[in-house]
Amino acid sequence: MSHLRKLATAAATLALVAGSSPATAETKLTIMVFAGMQNLPLFVAQSKGLFAKRGLAVDMKIAPNSDELRNGLADGRFQIVHAAADNSVAMVEMAKVDAKIVVGGDNGMNRLFVQPDIGAITDLRGKTVAVDAPNTAYAFQLYEMLRLAGLEREKDYTVQVVGATMRRVDALLADKTLSATMLNPPFSLRAAKAGLKDMGEATASIGPYQASAGFVLASWGRDNAETVVKYLSAYIEGMRWAADPANKAEAIRLVAENLKMPEDIAAAGYDLLMAGMNKDAALDMKGFENVLALRTRHTGKPTRPAADYIDLSYYQKAIAGM
């Protein structure tokens, strides 16, 4: 083989090797979320390679309860978490950790479910209600719905900590002494099918509410701004794909596979999610202000202005680049 031919062969081999390697090293992220329909944009981003094409390798963990989610973020075990926005507020106000909400999601789609023998919310007087944590998010929704019906916490009913939504629906079905809890899809659909009684949607009683939101430690966000923007770009693209009617059937299959449920339940949950999602995962400021108002009412402690808890600069860059 001539010298020139050897050089050409070597160059071709190097080009082939270079072409088969990723242009940049993957950035690994560990995130934590609660099980539920709200994760559809994440399921899409994983299955369609939306994270991968941006150089991200995302490992998604399921939260057993909000304490583990918040503690894991504070400890650096998770870089990004998705949960009710009030959890981020709780990190700031209770744990004195500087967390920032960087993206919205949905209104929670929460409904108050009770045991079949409960005829009205007032029948919960003297009963025990189940919550994830007693001092955050959907527990405040529950307390507010009961307050509007004339029932006061501690005086009129008892609160029992059970854990995440999937645990609470199991608890109510197994233990009839637990009389009520807040549930969202698909768990609300399972509850209704199993005979628990639906007492109405939270937002119909308490007004707009910013539920699902993504948040990070402020310092980690500043140090990894490009990664946050890439992550949000993939998340928003996943949400847009999921919301496209042309993708509905495939989206339902993704939900059924990831949440291990029948397709009819996944289909019903999909419709509820589409009704409860904010376009492009935008943060609903009126809903977030209501989150803060509920926290103040049910803790007796004032919060900071809404702007102190959020940093939408990453979201704005993600939207601008799409």
Rank of each mutant, 00 (worst) to 15 (best):
R77G: 11
F78Y: 15
Q79T: 07
Q79H: 12
V81S: 02
V81P: 05
H82R: 14
A84H: 10
A84I: 00
A84E: 13
N87E: 09
S88R: 04
V89Q: 04
A90H: 14
M91Q: 10
M94S: 12
M94L: 11
M94P: 00
A95Q: 13
K96I: 00
D98W: 02
A99Y: 02
K100W: 00
V102H: 02
V102C: 02
V102R: 03
V102I: 15
V103M: 14
V103R: 08
G104W: 05
G105T: 08
G105S: 03
D106I: 01
D106F: 11
N107G: 15
G108Y: 08
M109F: 10
M109W: 14
M109T: 11
M109N: 10
N110H: 15
N110C: 12
N110E: 14
L112A: 12
F113N: 06
F113W: 10
F113L: 03
V114P: 01
P116I: 01
I118V: 12
G119C: 01
T122L: 05
T122K: 13
T122N: 11
D123V: 02
R125M: 04
R125N: 13
R125E: 14
R125V: 03
G126N: 07
G126R: 02
K127Y: 07
K127L: 08
V129G: 08
A130W: 01
A130L: 07
A130H: 01
V131D: 09
D132N: 13
D132T: 03
P134E: 12
N135H: 15
T136M: 07
A137E: 02
A137W: 07
Y138N: 14
Y138S: 15
A139H: 04
Q141D: 15
Q141E: 14
L142S: 07
Y143P: 00
Y143S: 03
Y143D: 13
Y143C: 04
E144M: 04
E144A: 11
M145D: 09
L146T: 06
L146D: 07
R147S: 14
L148P: 01
L148A: 13
E152V: 06
E154I: 01
E154W: 07
E154M: 02
E154A: 12
E154P: 00
D156E: 00
D156N: 13
Y157S: 10
T158C: 02
T158W: 05
T158Q: 14
V159K: 04
V159R: 05
V159P: 03
Q160G: 00
Q160T: 03
V162F: 04
G163N: 02
G163D: 09
G163H: 00
T165P: 00
M166Y: 15
M166N: 13
R167W: 08
V169T: 08
V169F: 03
V169G: 05
D170L: 05
D170S: 12
A171Q: 05
A171Y: 13
L172H: 08
L172G: 06
L172W: 02
L173N: 09
L173M: 11
A174G: 12
D175G: 00
D175S: 09
D175K: 11
D175C: 08
T177N: 14
S179M: 04
S179Y: 05
S179T: 07
T181M: 08
T181H: 02
T181Q: 01
L183K: 12
N184Q: 10
N184A: 15
N184D: 11
P185W: 06
P185E: 03
P185Q: 03
F187T: 05
S188M: 02
L189V: 07
L189R: 10
R190E: 13
R190F: 13
A192F: 08
A192Q: 11
K193D: 13
A194F: 05
